[in-house]
Each structure stands twice: as C-alpha cells, then as structure tokens.
C-alpha cells in the first residue's frame, strides 16, 4: 500500500504529517522521502543511515575514432544536448534526458553511455521503520529520475509512506504516480486553497483517491472546508495552530513523541485512509 503525501503549496506540513503518521504506526512501515530537492524527513525520523549509493543517469559518450560527424545524433536530440561542430562533438550533460536516442541512431556505433551524477540515495532505519531518501546534487536540475529511483526501492509488502515535493509538475507526478492514495495537506489560507485546487486537479488526472489534512486549521479563513465539501474531498484530520507544536517542529521534535495524545489521531488517520483504499478496491 502506497500513500503519497502531497500539497501543491510548500510549507503546509507534508513532512510533519508523513513523519508523524510513520512514527505513530511504527514498526513495519516504510518511509520514502521523495522531496529530493529539499529532503527533511530524516530531521524528524532521525534514522540511522546504513548505506549510501550514488545515483547517476546515462549520458552519451562519443568515441571519436569511430565518429564520422554525420550529425544524426544532433538531429535526433530534442533537448539540444548533443551537437556536432566541424570535427568536434559537444555534449551538454545537464540538458540530456537520458532517452538513449543518439546511441540508437548512430550508424557507426560510436556512442556508448556514461553516467552523470544526479545525487545520492540513503538507506536507513529507525525503530523498525525502513527509511529511504534521495538527495539531489546541488546544481542538478532533473529530479524526476532520482525520485523514480527512490520509488523503485519500495517494498510492495509494506505500508509505504511517501513525502512528496511541493508543486504540480513532473517531480510531484513522479512522487504520486502509482500510489494507492494521495493525502493532501493544506492550510486554510488563500494561498493554501489556491494551490490545493491545483493539487486536486493533478490527483484527478492520475485517478488516485485522495483525502485532506487541514493544518493550522484555525488560521486564515474557512474557504478550504467549503471547497472540500464541494469536491467531496474527505477532511481526515485537522490540526489547530499551536505555538508549542510549531516550536517542537522548529527543533526537529515530532508531534506524536512530544504530545502522546496525537499518536492515536495519526493512527486513526491511517485507518481512515486504509478504509477508503479497501472500499475502492472492492468496488472496482
């Protein structure tokens, strides 16, 4: 079972919700931090990292001994990542999408592949919670392949909780596609609502059932609740703004560990999600 925690707007509490749900459920859960640009879940889960692997994406390597400068590689590349200038082949690794087209088209077999470093993937654990995160190399622009790599490590036997990046474009899709449920986290402000609407559209496009957590539920206005009702988006949990929660968060302390009364609420949140997924699988 894969539950992806997403939001549209950043800073609404994705990491708070996902890490606390994982801590509340405890042993047997698997946590994937797919916000590879700014991974933060480890600051709250505090896993012991057991190993780290470098993640690369293939880019072309040209053997000039074999190259006849026919320019077929340059013609096929839609990303302008390879170009031929007189007797030189220029490769722009940061533009390459690793489609392999140049390698296939080269009539001389002069192109092989080497790797461009995307970042790293870390494996660890904490109290029986399996933890994996990706960290994009600073300066690297393509996060989706790294997110896909983190996703590929998911154990299908486990409950997998994914902390997704903010936004609605390709990195978010990579973190949500194929999930059984998307848990959206918002705050009841005009920005929160505006970006939630975008996130809801994204989830609809992917055809994944979803539910809502309203964080800092007593700030701003009540528009988000009216919207949720209109959209038949179930509000599964509300968390009021409390300075002590904000302060605990600022120090990297989790809600369920600091305020034990919240543990049950996060377990309940999970059971509500589980029920929705089960209901859907019996009706489909």
């Amino acid at each position: 079972m894969i539950i992806s925690v997403a939001s549209g707007k950043g800073g609404t509490g994705k990491t708070t919700i996902s890490t606390n749900m994982a801590l509340a459920l405890g042993s047997g859960v698997e946590f994937l931090d797919c916000d590879v640009e700014e991974p933060n879940a480890h600051l709250f889960l505090k896993p012991v990292i057991e190993r780290t692997e470098l993640v690369t994406t293939p880019i072309p390597l040209v053997d000039l001994e074999k190259c006849t400068y026919c320019r077929k590689c340059s013609a096929i590349c839609r990303f302008n990542a390879i170009t031929v200038v007189s007797h030189k082949v220029l490769i722009f690794p940061e533009l390459c999408h690793s489609c392999g087209g140049c390698m296939v088209v080269c009539p001389e077999g002069a192109i092989t592949e080497t790797g461009r470093e995307l970042g790293e993937i870390n494996f660890g654990a904490r109290n029986g919670i399996r933890f994996i995160n990706g960290r994009l190399r600073v300066g690297e622009s393509m996060s989706p392949p790294l997110i896909k790599r983190v996703r590929s490590e998911a154990d299908p036997e486990k409950v997998t909780i994914i902390d997704a990046p903010p936004g609605t474009s390709c990195p978010v899709i990579a973190a949500m596609n194929g999930a059984d449920f998307v848990l959206m986290v918002t705050e009841p402000t005009p920005f929160g609502l505006h970006d939630l609407k975008l996130a809801v559209e994204t989830v609809k496009l992917l055809g994944i059932p979803s539910g809502l957590v309203v964080n800092r539920s007593d700030i701003g206005d009540q528009e988000v609740f009216a919207y949720a009702e209109r959209e038949q988006l179930p509000v599964l949990l509300t968390i009021p703004f409390e300075r002590r929660i904000a302060e605990a968060y600022s120090q990297g302390r989790s809600i369920v560990e600091e305020f034990p009364e919240w543990k049950e609420r996060f377990c309940e949140l999970f059971h509500k999600i589980e029920t929705i997924i089960q209901k859907r699988s019996t009706t489909v």
Partner: peptide
C-alpha cells in the same frame, strides 16, 4: 521564485 533547488529554481 519557486521552492526547492531543481529545474525551475535554477532557471
């Protein structure tokens, strides 16, 4: 600007 450090931020 956008959040993060990836493609839209670099742009």
């Amino acid at each position: 600007g956008p959040p993060g450090i990836g493609c839209p931020v670099i742009a």
